[in-house]
C-alpha cells in the first residue's frame, strides 16, 4: 500500500498553486484564438492540476472534489458538445460541422459565427481531455480500486 503523503510543505504548496494552474488552464482554453493554446493544451493543464492534487495527497482527496460520476459524465459531455455543434449546423441546413450557418441563431455575422463555434468546440475538447486524463490516471494509479493507492 502507498501511504498517504503527510508532507506539510508539499501539501501547502499544492494547495496554493492549484487555483493558479486551473486559472491558467481556463485562460489557455479561452484565449486559444489569439495566442498559442486551445482545447487539447488547456485540458491537459487542467488535468495536471487534479493529478498534482492526487500525487500530493491521495486519490480520495481528488474524488471528494471531482467525483467519479462527474468525471465519467464529463468524458461524454465534451464529445456531446462537439458533435452537438456539428448537428446544430446540420439542423439549420448546412453540412455537418459547417459553422457558418450558425449566424442564424447567433447575434453575429457568418464569419464571427465560425469563431464562436470554434470556441465552443475547443471547450468541448477541453472538457473531454481533462476528464479522460484524470480518469485514466486515477484508474492506473490505484489499479481501478480508487482507494488510497494499491500495489498488485
Amino acid at each position: 500500500m502507498i501511504k498517504r503523503n503527510e508532507d506539510i510543505i508539499i501539501q501547502t504548496v499544492t494547495r496554493l498553486l492549484t487555483p493558479f494552474v486551473q486559472l491558467f488552464a481556463l485562460y489557455v482554453i479561452a484565449h486559444g484564438h489569439y495566442s498559442p493554446g486551445g482545447g487539447f493544451q488547456g485540458g491537459c493543464i487542467l488535468a495536471a492540476s487534479f493529478i498534482l492534487m492526487a500525487v500530493a495527497n491521495d486519490v480520495a482527496f481528488v474524488k471528494r472534489r471531482l467525483p467519479e460520476r462527474l468525471t465519467t459524465a464529463l468524458i461524454s459531455a465534451g464529445v456531446l458538445i462537439y458533435a452537438g455543434i456539428g448537428l446544430a449546423c446540420l439542423m439549420l441546413g448546412a453540412n455537418f460541422l459547417d459553422y457558418g450557418i450558425l449566424h442564424r441563431v447567433l447575434p453575429v455575422d457568418a464569419v464571427k459565427a465560425r469563431a464562436l463555434a470554434t470556441l465552443g468546440v475547443e471547450i468541448g475538447v477541453g472538457i473531454t481531455v481533462m476528464a479522460v486524463m484524470v480518469s485514466i490516471f486515477l484508474n492506473l494509479l490505484s489499479a481501478g480500486r480508487h482507494e488510497e493507492g494499491a500495489v498488485e
Binding site: H33, Y34, G38, V111, R114, A115, A117, T118, V121, E122
Partner: peptide
Amino acid sequence: ETATPNAVTSVLADYRG
C-alpha cells in the same frame, strides 16, 4: 473566413473539424 488569427486553432476546429 474564420476571424481567428491563430491558424492552428482555425485548422484544428474549423477546416479539419
